[in-house]
Design a protein around this nucleic acid. Structure first.
Lengths: 308, 308
DNA sequence: TCAAAAGTGTTATCCTTACACCCATGT
DNA sequence: ACATGGGTGTAAGGATAACACTTTTGA
């Protein structure tokens, strides 16, 4: 079988490490936001999971609430291209609790909407979509001479970027479309940088792609698994919980429906206490019912669809 | 950090390759059903996807309709334990079309219910659940002395194996529970084989676990992506389509509701022809509308829940 | 003429969505 | 008193689940 066999292969780990800080979804980055944490897998560990956990917890000094594998790449790219050494990079999504009131912000936590500003619909459709993105995609359509290709491109743009058909889970597809249309800096060959890139900070290598994968996975997951709670403090109000889900999903939720669903699914229970630090009437405090994870094969946090 | 650095690492591929043959969901196996196809990744290929495609198509001589990564393991197990060589195994789910009327059956295709007989609820709850599995799990509960542990086990068993809470997607959780309860042969240490294993054929290494992952993924996927069509012939009747989905989901569907949903979602279109080989009234033939994959970010095949 | 599968019309129920409103606190 | 967020009742609409029935063929 061709040039197979053992070789110098490097196993690299990448982490999309998420925390909620002041109602903003943040990811841990290095190098002034240009990189996700990554490093070699320490072959001493018995399993990948334990290796990832140990490595991430050393980087962040936070216990890791939840870890999930995202994707494995083994593509020939990166610096190693010529060296005959192959890199397999295995990426993970991790959720952690960030103590917020600490005053001093830890560095490296960046809002993920810095990288994907078009993904934040909490205040309605972001202006830059209409202003900067859709016109550029329109131009990309126009570039296609072949009518079949043009039609295909139009359908993809409409299916992924239109206000009506907006699906907050399609983070990766949207990024890939922008990449293909050469609208993000990462798409340029080393020399030929993109002339006038879109708003949204780039990252080195394929790290923004990995981040998109992580966001997409998390947005999908919160709908059928109670993972939000890994990002919440032990006690929280329903308003806080709603804002957390909104921050992740990138869109506003309907208050009453959200509450009804959370309560009727038995996801939370009252602590008995309430808090008065919220600016209005004091809110009851709740905590996550951990038992639920055993009780049912799938416990979900459904997201009602509409505004305010 | 620690014992890291480049080492002799072997990249291995595993494939869960699925086809539908005579309304049975089949997987390609080797060694008389004891192994999934697996082999080294040929480092010549530019990307993993192309490597997998090439490798699988050489094994099966069938074009591969759909490929998706399942999971990556790098655990210290297998034969290489002492050799200092590490194996990273990357598993894939692949869907292919098997020409059925060929008369001569290709070898190696096994019904996946051979490995997971308790997962087939098309004719109602399988008798062996009540007869063989639930009593064993009951005994496993009884073994727990610690009341907390006992309660936890009970909740997991009830959440995953009960008739009422049965969730056909939880294939992996159920297998893992049986593994933990030492009811499958794979759970035994090399010497000490399980005394009286459950019905359901075992596989070598962790291959049955990988298969469970693949089935679970596919069962989840058919609900929101039109992947069933990768397993269907170009033209098919709605009855065939329904039996295909039932075979994968492992449970019966409601005819009218199934049809309504398929049609109203615009997933298929009539070919104009009809077939008379079905034993009763001739059925209209349909084909998949491939355009739909571009039109919408998510196109789904919803599964109505009930019997007959 | 009967078995077998295709194909259709209609209803009850529940969940989703949405509107409108009241409550308790700090300033 | 009023702004702010917490908290609730209820109704409209749509999707889901279910029932019962007709149609068209082959044996």
């Amino acid at each position: 079988m061709a040039a197979g066999g053992p070789r110098n292969v490097l196993i690299e780990l990448n982490a999309v490490l998420v925390a909620l800080i002041d109602d903003a979804p943040k990811v841990l980055t290095l190098e002034d936001g240009a990189l996700l944490p990554s490093g070699p897998f320490e072959t001493g560990h018995p399993t990948l999971q334990t290796g990832v956990r140990a490595w991430v917890e050393r980087q962040t000094h936070h216990p890791l609430g939840y870890v999930e594998q995202l994707y494995t790449f083994a593509d020939r790219n990166r610096a190693e291209a010529g060296t005959g050494r192959r890199t397999v990079s295995i990426s993970y999504l991790g959720l952690t609790r960030e103590r917020t009131a600490q005053g001093e912000r830890e560095p490296g936590w960046q809002s993920w909407y810095r990288y994907f500003p078009w993904e934040d619909w909490r205040e309605g459709m972001p202006g830059l979509l209409e202003r900067a993105i859709l016109p550029r995609l329109e131009r990309w359509l126009a570039e296609a001479r072949d009518p079949v290709l043009k039609r295909e491109r139009r359908q993809r743009v409409e299916g992924n970027f239109d206000e009506k058909s907006w699906n907050e889970e399609a983070v990766l597809q949207r990024y890939e479309l922008l990449y293909e249309a050469q609208l993000v800096p990462e798409a340029g060959r080393p020399r030929a940088r993109i002339a006038d890139p879109l708003p949204g900070a780039p990252m080195r290598y394929d790290h923004r792609r990995i981040l998109a994968t992580g966001i997409a996975r998390l947005r999908a997951k919160i709908k059928y698994r109670p993972v939000v709670f890994e990002l919440m403090p032990p006690d929280f109000t329903l308003g806080q919980l709603q804002r957390a889900v909104e921050a992740l999903a990138g869109r506003p939720l309907h208050k009453q429906n959200f509450r009804r669903q959370v309560e009727q699914q038995g996801l939370v229970e009252e602590t008995g206490a309430s808090t008065s630090g919220t600016g209005g009437r004091p809110a009851k405090l709740y905590r996550f019912r951990r038992e639920i994870m055993l009780e049912r094969a799938l416990a979900g946090t459904k997201l009602p669809i509409t505004r305010s």
